[in-house]
């Protein structure tokens, strides 16, 4: 590279440094706390016990307002997930009397039938209008893809695609920080029907603090502290958004190994062919 290009590169970098902080102050959104989840990295796997705990937190807390439409009950029993047995989930459906819509009965009234393993987890609300009316005019979003749809890193991560490449979008960390991050506004400000959360875009959300610790009882001996519950539900929702994560990484490893070996062999073939050919 010559002088002109060096100068340009330098000025470009300088601009990036100036523009970065300016951008961050616009967002005013705090970075999620980095957390080492078990499913991170090229060999990461879900912690089954954690997914089971997270399912409990989801069902007993989040599910009172949020749907999870892309998860079917059978998914909870499939490999790469929480690993409940089919009988456990059938029993769960029976005990909690979970029903799904079944059209209209002979009197023309809306009918229901008990949920089956093949059914999606039913929406806690009958309509969007009902969801809106029950939640201060804000429809609670479906949580099936929430971990993929949210990002956790802003300044200085925001302008660093290299760091994102290794740390991911931080969606799980965002969920973890957000659900446990409600606090009093720093200046003591209060807003009608809104709650302060530094991790939330704009800081004020219609969602009330969902967890305070001891919201559920864990059967595996883990202590349901606020942090534990938040971590577990973030892990569960990561699984809900990527139920094929373990399969993806497993097939990925085989593919990378194959391509690596094949690349070496192809290199040897190319070398052998071109040996003695001037080029």
């Amino acid at each position: 590279m010559n002088t002109v290009t060096k100068m340009l590169t330098a000025s470009g970098l300088a601009l990036a440094l100036i523009a970065g902080p300016a951008l961050a102050s616009e967002h005013k959104q705090e970075n999620a706390e980095d957390y080492a989840f078990s499913f991170e990295g090229p060999f990461g796997k879900y912690d089954k016990a954690q997914l089971k705990r997270g399912w409990k937190v989801f069902y007993e807390v989040c599910y009172s307002c949020h749907s999870l439409k892309y998860i079917r009950f059978r998914n909870l029993t499939e490999p790469g997930g929480p690993g409940f047995s089919k009988d456990e989930i059938k029993k769960f459906i029976k005990e909690n009397e979970i029903v799904v819509d079944a059209g209209y009965n002979e009197d023309g009234e809306p009918a229901t039938r008990p949920a089956r393993l093949s059914d999606a987890i039913p929406n806690p609300y009958k309509s969007e209008a009902q969801a809106k009316a029950s939640n201060n005019n804000a429809v609670p979003p479906d949580l099936s893809l929430i971990v993929k749809a949210r990002e956790g890193w802003y300044y200085p991560w925001y302008s660093s695609p290299i760091i994102k490449l290794f740390k991911g979008n931080g969606g799980a960390e965002y969920v973890r920080s957000f659900v446990s991050g409600f606090e009093d506004a720093p200046d003591g400000e209060e807003k009608e029907g809104l709650n302060y959360n530094p991790y939330f875009k704009g800081h004020w959300t219609a969602m009330p603090p969902p967890l305070s610790g001891d919201d559920v009882e864990y059967s595996d001996g883990a202590k349901p502290t606020l942090e534990q519950e938040a971590t577990d539900v973030a892990a569960f929702l990561t699984w809900a958004s990527q139920p094929k994560l373990e399969e993806r990484k497993r097939v990925g490893l085989m593919t990378m190994l194959f391509l690596g070996v094949f690349a070496l062999m192809m290199y040897a073939v190319k070398r052998a062919l071109w040996a003695g050919v001037k080029h």
């Binding site: 993929k148 979008n169 993806r248 990484k249 990378m256 391509l259 094949f262 690349a263």
Partner: peptide
Amino acid sequence: FAIVVFLMFYAAFVFYSPWYMGHSINF
């Protein structure tokens, strides 16, 4: 040979960072 090497970079994204180049909000 070059194709196989290129596919390695491609596979790394497909398997380990599949929506790195997309946008979270599109979910």
